[in-house]
Amino acid sequence: MPQKNDSNTFSDTGSGSSAPIRINKALAQAGICSRRAADDLVAQGLVAVNGETVTAAGTKVVPGKDHITVQGKPIALSSPGQDEFNYVLLNKPTQVVTTVSDPQGRRTVLDVLPQNLKKNRLFPVGRLDFFSQGLLLLTNDGEMANRLTHPSWHLPKVYRVTIRGGIAEAKLNIMRKGMVLAEGERLSPVEVTIAKQQAGTVQLEMTLIQGLNRQIRRMCRDLKWTVLRLERVSQGPLSLGRLREGQARELQADELAALRKAVGLETNKK
């Protein structure tokens, strides 16, 4: 039976076992969530290996040998091949949570997907808050998700933000130079332009190269702006195009190839 050693590694005492891998990588390969989300599950005590709850992010397991459960449900550690991975582009509506389940009973991004796209344990990559909408990628490719959420591979994201009232150029320049949030976090410069002006509102287009939680809403809060609408329209090579709110579709081959190239993953296709 696999046993835990002193270095937080579960290993098989028999011969012919696979090499141990980190628990977050194992969960990502199984299509449960991204590596970052897996670390959160472990930290919350929701993951058990061979019946023992683990809380150390560095815990290692042996695929095909160790028995893993997440919230009591057994997880198969077999990793799908690239051809079995799925990539779905969703135009997330407002008042939908970017999770696969919600204890408060609110609609999740999986609830929005049509039945034909609900397959192979899709999970959202990154987040859009409850009242925001727009482009969201869902996949069961843990390595892709890890690249897209890791700071070293962060792809530019473009948002259209509708603000009540007028906009002073001086405040736009604060964003462009890199502002400091009220919580003390220093931001990288944000590319921002006025896309449209109507009576009583201004639509801004912002390009972010960071992934701070609720960054746009917090910037606007500190600049005393009221956000009426926040929509993500592109991420790296991916764009909403004509995909309407609430609609979803699988990525096309050229989109997937461009995305894999953008995060440094070589395609196996010739």
Rank of each mutant, 00 (worst) to 15 (best):
P124C: 11
A168R: 06
R221I: 02
K119T: 11
T98R: 07
P63I: 08
T98V: 01
S7A: 15
R176G: 06
R107M: 08
D222E: 01
A199D: 05
S152N: 11
D6Q: 09
T9I: 10
S7K: 15
K65N: 09
P2T: 01
D12T: 00
F85Y: 15
V192G: 02
A28D: 03
L155N: 03
L27S: 05
V109S: 05
R244W: 06
G178V: 06
T226E: 15
V233N: 04
T59E: 06
K171M: 06
Q104M: 00
T149I: 13
T69H: 14
L251C: 12
L243I: 05
M206H: 11
G165W: 02
I21A: 05
K269Q: 00
R160W: 14
F130N: 03
N91M: 13
N50M: 04
I32H: 08
L41R: 11
A168I: 09
L41G: 03
K177Q: 15
V109L: 08
G166W: 14
R221D: 03
R164Q: 05
G246I: 10
N140G: 02
L117G: 06
A199Y: 07
R218A: 11
V49R: 02
V97A: 13
L117D: 07
K171A: 02
V180D: 14
L46N: 09
P124A: 11
F85W: 15
L113M: 06
L259K: 02
D39P: 04
S17P: 08
S239T: 13
L27N: 02
G165N: 01
K119C: 12
I167M: 02
Q29K: 05
R249G: 04
A76R: 12
Q198Y: 09
V180R: 15
T207R: 12
R35Q: 12
P237M: 01
A168F: 04
F10H: 03
L238T: 02
E52L: 09
S17T: 09
T53C: 09
R218T: 02
I174S: 14
A182L: 05
P74C: 06
V47M: 10
R127G: 03
L136M: 03
N268R: 13
A30Y: 04
A168E: 14
A262N: 10
H67F: 14
A19Y: 15
S15A: 14
V125G: 07
A43Q: 00
Y87G: 08
L122H: 00
K261W: 15
L238Y: 08
E52R: 11
V161Y: 04
L230V: 05
A57Y: 12
K196Q: 10
G81T: 08
F130I: 08
V192I: 10
G105N: 10
Q247M: 14
V88E: 07
K119H: 12
L46K: 10
V192L: 01
A262F: 06
E245Q: 15
R218I: 05
D102S: 08
T55W: 07
E255W: 09
E52A: 13
S132G: 00
R121I: 06
Q44L: 12
I75M: 07
F131T: 12
T201I: 07
K118Y: 08
V202S: 04
